[in-house]
């Protein structure tokens, strides 16, 4: 069996690799969200709902998107919050 010290050294290395991967992934994702500011975004939601809006901001837990000029099937809502749980995917151009 592996001595405890070697095992814990391996654990520490794995942890730091994992932390590095997590921070690389998160930073790119945050940059992606930032690049969406003031862009037209198409949301593809559950129940076949598709809407377009101008993106404002996301909370950091990715639970809500704050948007403007949301084109709903029954008209335009000037300011809105979209629940991320309602969303399957969204698209924008860069």
């Amino acid at each position: 069996s592996i001595p405890t010290s070697a095992a814990s050294e391996e654990d520490a290395e794995l942890l730091s690799e994992e932390q590095h991967a997590r921070s690389v992934l998160r930073e790119s994702f945050l940059r992606c969200l930032l690049s969406m500011t003031n862009k037209k975004v198409q949301f593809n939601m559950y129940e076949k709902v598709k809407v377009e809006a101008t993106f404002g901001a996301s909370d950091i837990d990715v639970l809500n998107f704050q948007v403007s000029d949301l084109h709903t099937p029954i008209g335009v809502q000037k300011e809105a919050l979209i629940r991320c749980r309602d969303v399957i995917s969204f698209t924008f151009d860069i």
């Binding site: 690389v24 992934l25 994702f29 992606c32």
Partner: peptide, 17 residues
């Protein structure tokens, strides 16, 4: 979702969501 399919180059995965 139900049957939607998306294709593209994967740039990143958000570790939170």
């Amino acid at each position: 979702g139900k049957d939607a399919e998306h294709r593209g180059w994967l740039m990143t995965v958000d570790p939170v969501s």
